[in-house]
């Protein structure tokens, strides 16, 4: 059985809530309207456009980009198509070929470029697509040694099977040799991280259709 106290409490609570209900409703309404306005005017994030140089690669002028501890020399690109077979769906890959040299004058250490250092720029505001790292000497993740001449490698990007383009763009990011913030208790020895956009190269891909021997 409900006591009188409970009943009075309910009554007061009801009054208080009701008294402010209109204010709350107006406030929520304003927030919703503001969100709609921001969305309609192109989102909260300011679009700055491209702040790094764009280099064009043609058949006889490769583009050289120094980014962090790597020096890339982009040469050509390919769209490799694998037609549909009885056993598999159609597939396509975007291959970008480059010569890579280790210019790590901080640590002189062998290594392989991370997957997020090369990104395909699909354009039209779509998200960038990370690469698959570098395939050198036919092996993924092959270490590039400091002091040795450039090594020709390629990287792969996943593309939709019906993808076509006259020109593609690949963004190159360079890591910085710096330490984390010691104030937060992190170790203050510097290391290669914090990749930053360095350049964009524009390539004209050739289309290669892979023959399937089991067709």
């Amino acid at each position: 059985m409900e006591s009188l106290d409970d009943v009075i409490d309910d009554l007061i609570a009801d009054r208080v809530i009701r008294r402010h209900r209109r204010t709350w409703l107006i406030l929520i309404g304003v927030v919703v309207v503001l969100a709609l306005i921001v969305l309609a005017t192109g989102g909260w994030k300011e679009r700055q456009g491209r702040a790094v140089p764009t280099l064009t690669v043609t058949a006889d002028t490769p583009a050289t980009v120094e980014a962090g501890r790597w020096e890339f020399g982009f040469t050509r690109s390919e769209i490799v198509r694998e037609p549909k077979t009885d056993y598999s769906t159609a597939k396509a890959e975007l291959l970008v070929y480059f010569d890579i040299r280790n210019i790590d004058t901080e640590e002189y250490q062998s290594g392989t470029p991370r997957q997020n250092l090369l990104r395909w720029v699909p354009g039209n505001g779509a998200d960038l697509v990370e690469s698959s790292g570098a395939y050198c000497r036919g092996k993924p993740g092959w270490s590039i040694v400091y002091g040795l001449p450039p090594q020709s490698c390629y990287t792969k990007f996943e593309i939709p099977p019906d993808f076509t383009a006259d020109e593609i763009e690949v963004g190159i990011l360079g890591e910085k040799y710096e330490s984390d913030d010691g104030l937060l208790g992190a170790d203050e020895t510097p290391y290669w991280h914090n990749p930053e956009a360095t350049a964009v190269v524009r390539l004209r891909p050739t289309v290669v259709v892979k023959e399937d021997k089991y067709r």
Binding site: S110, S143, Y146
Partner: peptide, 11 residues
């Protein structure tokens, strides 16, 4: 000796 660091090959 001059602090170059080499990693094992990816095989």
């Amino acid at each position: 000796d001059s602090d170059a660091v080499f990693s094992p090959i990816a095989m």
